[in-house]
Design a protein around this nucleic acid. Structure first.
Length: 943
RNA sequence: GCAGGCGUGGCGAAAUUGGCAGACGCACUAGACUUAGGAUCUAGCGGAGCAAUCCAUGGGGGUUCAAGUCCCUUCGCCUGCACCA
């Protein structure tokens, strides 16, 4: 019928020759900057996933241009990184060559898809004219003290033989190769990203990122507010500093834990009596991989430091010190105060090693009342192993099912009290104590005694030994009031309603630390406070006044480890001189080019391959002129992508990375699309980089991106991620060959919700090709007439509205579907006007640009769509003359009627009641209510 | 464990935001045209029933004249973070 290849090539040539998509740096038009993450030009070529996001934003770009915006939709290459390096090593060529080849392939594929990129702005991060400015910006960081070299425990990938940032080693796994990472002490360049933690949080407010992206960033930054507290070491002129978010629990500290890497261990090794045991533990911890160490489900391990004690500055009590790998060296101070009663991890640790647990917060049940009388009491749960049941008292109307409760008498322990009460009320006397849980603060009103009580209730669990019983000793007022019943756990959950009793039961079964709010006890001046924030503030005030600590904020975010021990990256422009130390390369000497060699291998010493290239390494000190050595580490992959959107604005500038007035014209990226996998890495780095440049007055906006959206993945036909090994990879080139670029574009837009994953389906693609064929055939129905066909006016206007809105909101699937509906309408007709046809082609043009232009051209419908305006719709033409009203009785659909639009309520009711099927359902019944929603529904409620 | 999301035919999905569930497409079935069909056209297509009707948006409960949509609860799946003190 038609040759897609010919048509596509024809129009691609047309666009290139006419510079249709060239963005102007000066324009009267309003600007709109659309950015899609630039690809890493791998040897595998374009992925159908690329096609999805590029097509989506291409549709947006084309629409915006037709709406009269000066649209910047650029494309380039993020080409530094390991794969090119590996490939080059294997084939003994320079990675530059490999990159050039791959870019050629990639670009060819993109061109064949007909994307409206402004190719005049293309660049690669590996171009010296680009990375010159990446290096330049690094020097700015250095100048401001934002880049520093430090000996640091870093994530080391033994396979890639390079250090990694925390973001690249999430979960203790190397992002690139999947190997488990190790910790290695190495001297590294770092960027002080922590200094921007608050700005990165604050800046989010100025953006319109998807909520899940914002949340991911917020979590990654991990801001927490709390206090630093100093615990003096006994008999030493030293204090152990800890960070806590719960200074309100300071009175509940029963031990301290240091991470195995803590410096004080080494320092006071001579004081530690069991230092051999301690060292053994430290070595074991070191041996473990990051994954093993941070597995939250594993059992706690640790060693007590004998001979070293800390003093709780709040009450001067001596506290034992342990080391354990559940405390992380790189968060807070690498040491914690442990409050087992109110922290899950400390609780587990204390339980395992038999450390004392002091409760300082009581869970509160019941409502506080006026004039309460205080008493101590117990709730005792007795468990019978043989029947798997629990002992309860069924009080019937007097309080329902309860466990055994009672008031503690003077000089009576909780256990004694419980045993006494159990025997008195049920007669069982051979029971074994199992455990006691943290006390609960309970409030209730006793109607029989007309008294309000506040009680401190201790929950206890006992095990029934045998069924021996003595006679119960009941008070007069208790006789015949309750029945003793053994019931299952399920019955308890259903029938015990008393808040204290059911809470006690749950807590006994769960056996957890209590981390919630409650009433402060055992806490000196904090006693009685029931508000957590108040308790925290009061404690911080106290410790600050007494110089034992201060308010602090902590972040999970760490400084950005910026060194990579690799060849194929931007050289870090620093020189080391024996006399002057680290000296920055002067700006005028940039770029520091990578040497033109083809032989380099990662070294086993952990040094960059560049270290072996002596003629490159040896240089002179820019400061004193003595012999000096270049930094051989290179920048991470993320460096080049941390400012590329700025370069697109002014890509040929050789005086500065981009002229300020041009940056000002383009401003923020209006719409930025990329994968969800970059929500915490690239996006964080890029924002950090940009915010830094803003603070240096080098860019005009605080935040780089206004709106960030994320596309879903295209999965294989089997629903799994496409991969070579699974054999489910779809090559876009093959699809373009068989079905044409337009069909592929339409299908990827139609496949489903743009933000969600979708499985590939070649059948689906065929369907879209059929849709385009149908549109092609429609050309034979076009007459010489102008204007819309009268009977199509309504649907045409509706479709214009729908498609316009759907593309703007990125609901491409429904945009395509509404165009299918429109073309189905056209198909029913014998003839179409020129305008009927042209509007369909125009609306489809952003998604299928080639065939629509071709049809406009061969049907003689005027100038190319890309040179015309986006259509508007006429609301008044969209009104239907008649509307179908659903009629239901008691909410069940019983009939339909077609009435003139905006028929009033009375008329609708009257008409509804006259329908045969409605009569049938309402006759002889009382009408209770008539609900009428004009143009929608009539519902008659009868009895 | 915490946070977020999702759950609708055989499949991909729609549903004007509380108002006729399943638009549109795929697959499938029957038929027409055809030398042929991976082309095109016509009809059908959630389940049960001859039908009237009934049942159906993971399960259970609730609010409402009316629930895929709101609330509670439960199960399942996915994603992110995960011993962050």
């Amino acid at each position: 019928m038609y040759n897609t290849k010919e048509i596509e090539e024809k129009w691609q040539k047309y666009w290139t020759e006419h510079e249709t998509f060239k963005a102007e740096n000066k324009s009267d038009k309003e600007k709109y900057y659309i950015l899609v993450e630039f690809p890493y030009p791998s040897g595998h070529g374009l992925h159908v996933g690329h096609v999805r996001s590029y097509t989506a934003l291409d549709a947006m770009a084309r629409l915006k241009r037709m709406e009269g915006y000066n649209v910047l939709y650029p494309m380039g290459w993020d080409a530094f990184g390991a794969p090119a390096e590996q490939y080059a090593i294997k084939n003994h060529i320079h990675p530059k060559k490999a990159v050039e080849e791959n870019i050629k392939v990639f670009k060819g594929q993109l061109l064949r898809m007909g994307y409206s990129f402004d190719w005049s702005r293309e660049f690669s991060t590996t171009d010296p004219s680009y990375y010159k400015w990446t290096q330049w910006q690094f020097l700015k960081f250095y100048e401001q003290g934002m880049a520093y070299k430090a000996e640091k425990e870093i994530n080391w990938c033994p396979n890639c033989k390079t250090g990694l940032s925390n973001e690249d080693a999430q979960g203790g796994v190397c992002e690139r190769c999947g190997s488990k990472t190790e910790k290695k002490l190495k001297s590294q360049w770092l960027l002080k990203m922590t200094k921007y933690a608050d700005k990165l949080l604050e800046g989010l407010k100025e953006t319109e990122f998807l909520d899940k992206i914002k949340t991911a960033q917020i979590n990654w930054i991990g801001k927490s507010e709390g206090a630093s507290v100093y615990f003096p070491l006994e008999d030493l002129d030293e204090a152990l500093e800890v960070y806590t978010t719960r200074p309100d629990t300071l009175f509940g500290v029963t031990f301290m834990v240091m991470s195995p890497e803590h410096k004080l261990i080494e320092k006071y090794a001579s004081k530690i009596k069991n230092i051999d045991e301690v060292k053994k533990y430290i070595n074991e911890a070191k041996e473990k991989t990051e994954i093993e160490r941070t597995d939250a489900t594993k059992e706690k391990t640790g060693v007590k430091l004998e001979g070293l004690k800390a003093i709780n500055p709040i009450n001067n009590k001596k506290v034992e010190i342990w080391i354990s790998d559940y405390v992380l060296a790189n968060y807070g101070t690498g040491a914690i105060m442990a409050v087992p009663a109110h922290d899950e991890r400390d609780y587990a640790f204390a339980k395992k090693f038999g450390i004392k647990i002091i409760p300082v917060i009581e869970q509160i049940t019941g409502e506080k009342q006026e004039n309460e009388t205080f008493k101590n009491s117990i709730v005792a749960v007795v468990y019978d192993e043989t029947t798997n049941k629990y002992l309860t008292l069924n009080w019937g109307d007097l309080g329902g099912r309860l466990f055994i409760g009672g008031t503690r008498q003077e000089n009576e322990t909780a256990i004694e009290c419980a045993k006494r009460e159990i025997e008195e009320e049920t007669g069982y006397n051979n029971i074994e104590f199992v455990k006691e849980i943290l006390p609960i603060n309970h409030h209730y009103y006793a109607y029989n005694k007309k008294t309000a009580y506040e009680i401190e209730s201790t929950g206890l669990l006992f095990k029934l030994q045998d069924n021996n019983k003595v006679e119960a000793k009941l008070d007069e007022d208790e006789k015949d009031k309750f029945k003793v019943e053994w019931v299952t756990k399920e019955e308890i959950t259903e029938s015990v309603t008393d808040e204290l009793h059911i809470t006690t039961f749950t807590n006994l079964l769960n056996d957890n630390a209590y981390t919630g709010d409650g009433k402060m006890i055992n806490s000196g001046f904090l006693n009685g406070i029931t508000n957590k924030k108040e308790a925290i503030d009061k404690m911080i005030e106290y410790i600050e006044k007494n110089n034992i600590g201060h308010r602090t904020t902590n972040y999970r975010l760490q400084d950005w480890i910026f060194s990579r021990q690799r060849f194929w990256g931007e050289p870090i422009p620093m020189v080391y001189c024996e006399k002057c130390g680290w000296v920055p390369v002067p700006y005028e000497d940039l770029p520091i080019l990578l040497p033109d060699v083809t032989a380099y291998e990662p070294t086993d010493t952990g040094e960059s391959p560049l270290a072996n290239i002596t003629e490159w390494v040896n240089t002179t000190c820019p400061h004193c002129g003595s012999p000096a050595k270049r930094e051989t580490d290179t920048m991470p992959n993320w460096a080049g992508s941390s400012w590329y959107w700025l370069r697109y604005m002014d890509p040929k500038n050789d005086k500065e990375f981009a002229a300020y007035d041009i940056l000002k014209y383009w401003g923020m990226v209006d719409l930025y699309n990329g994968g969800m996998e970059h929500a915490t890495r690239h996006l964080l780095y890029a924002r950090f980089w940009h915010e830094f440049l803003y603070d240096q007055g080098l860019v005009p906006t605080k935040e780089p991106f206004k709106k960030r959206v994320a596309h879903g993945m295209i999965l294989g036909e089997n629903g799994e991620k496409m991969s070579k090994s699974k054999g489910n990879v779809i090559n876009p080139d093959d699809m373009v060959k068989t079905y044409g670029a337009d069909a592929l574009r339409v299908f990827e837009m139609f496949i489903g919700d743009y933000t969600k994953d979708a499985s590939w389906s070649e059948f689906g693609l065929k369907g879209c090709k059929r849709f385009l064929d149908k549109i092609y055939r429609l050309k034979d129905k076009v007459t010489n007439k102008n204007g819309y066909s009268k009977d199509l006016e309504n649907i045409i206007n509706k479709t214009i509205k729908k498609v316009t809105e759907d593309i703007h909101t990125m609901n491409f699937n429904t945009a395509v579907s509404s165009l299918m509906i429109l073309s189905n309408e056209y198909d029913k007709k014998e003839e179409l006007t020129k305008d009927d046809y042209r509007i369909l082609l125009t609306l489809l043009n952003p998604i299928a640009p080639h065939i629509t232009e071709e049809l406009v051209s061969i049907t003689g419908l005027g100038s190319p769509i890309c040179e015309t305006k986006w259509p508007t719709y006429d609301e008044t033409k969209m009104k239907d003359e008649t509307v179908v009203i659903a009629v239901s009785v008691n909410g069940k659909l019983r009939g339909q009627m077609t009435v003139p639009t905006d028929t009033d309520k009375e008329e609708l009711t009257r008409l509804a009641k006259s329908l045969d099927n409605i009569k049938k359902h309402i006759d002889g019944k009382e009408i209770i209510k008539e609900i009428v929603v004009p143009n929608k529904i009539v519902n008659i409620v009868v009895k």
